[in-house]
């Protein structure tokens, strides 16, 4: 009885449930953000002003575009165009890495300026700023970890597509990997204005 074909709806349902858990995982950090923004509005504005909008905005472009390419890769595979699908996935993975490289430079610049959790300059400054940067590092760090995991999953699926194990008739693995990648994008859509554009 094991030769039954895959239950597509079931697989996607499971994936969505998993995405909800990710959403609520970040939700915990959003609760803290909301509460501390409410308590320290001025310090949050000062803190946000110190973040570089160009890094944040650039990474937004990168992630939005990578979301487009991964969505297109699914359409490509559904239409049977395997090589286009692989190319789009490679582009997505490249953008994921670009995002991480950007993040690396952004973080190192901040750390270089003495802004990191537990840094002396933060402990001497107003309490709200230390909370802002604590949250900033935790949230973007956790998000960065998800980008890394997402890139890993997409690489794995890319090889499956190339070998034909994931194909136009059996592509739920690609769809689920895509869903995961879009979630990473979704979280960033909220992170960007909340941290880089507070006013």
């Amino acid at each position: 009885m094991t030769e039954q074909h895959k239950d597509y709806t079931g697989a996607k349902l499971g994936m969505w449930l998993f995405l909800f858990t990710e959403l609520i995982l970040f939700g915990g950090l959003f609760i803290l953000y909301g509460v501390y923004l409410n308590r320290y509005p001025q310090e949050f504005i000062t803190g946000g002003g110190e973040l570089n909008v160009w890094f944040g905005g650039g990474n937004t472009l990168v992630l939005l575009t990578s979301s487009l390419t991964v969505a297109m890769s699914i359409s490509a595979l559904q239409r049977g165009n395997r090589s286009l699908c692989v190319k789009l996935l490679v582009a997505t993975i490249a953008m994921a890495l670009l995002f991480l490289v950007n993040k690396y430079f952004e973080w190192s610049a901040k750390i270089h300026h003495g802004i990191y959790p537990g840094a002396p300059s933060l402990q001497e400054g107003p309490p709200g700023e230390s909370v802002f940067f604590g949250l900033y590092y935790l949230t973007t760090g956790l998000h960065g970890l998800h980008v890394l995991i997402g890139a890993g999953i997409l690489t794995w699926v890319m090889f499956l597509v190339r070998s034909g194990k994931v194909n136009g008739d059996d592509f739920v693995t690609l769809e689920n990997a895509g869903l995961y990648w879009h979630l990473v994008d979704l979280i960033w859509i909220f992170l960007f204005p909340l941290y880089y554009l507070v006013l």
Binding site: L32, P117, G118, V131
Partner: peptide, 17 residues
């Protein structure tokens, strides 16, 4: 591990959170 201080009143955190 890194002392983010999010629940530490000394650095503006709130233990009740």
């Amino acid at each position: 591990l890194v002392g983010t201080g999010l629940f530490d009143p000394a650095s503006g955190g709130d233990p009740i959170m």
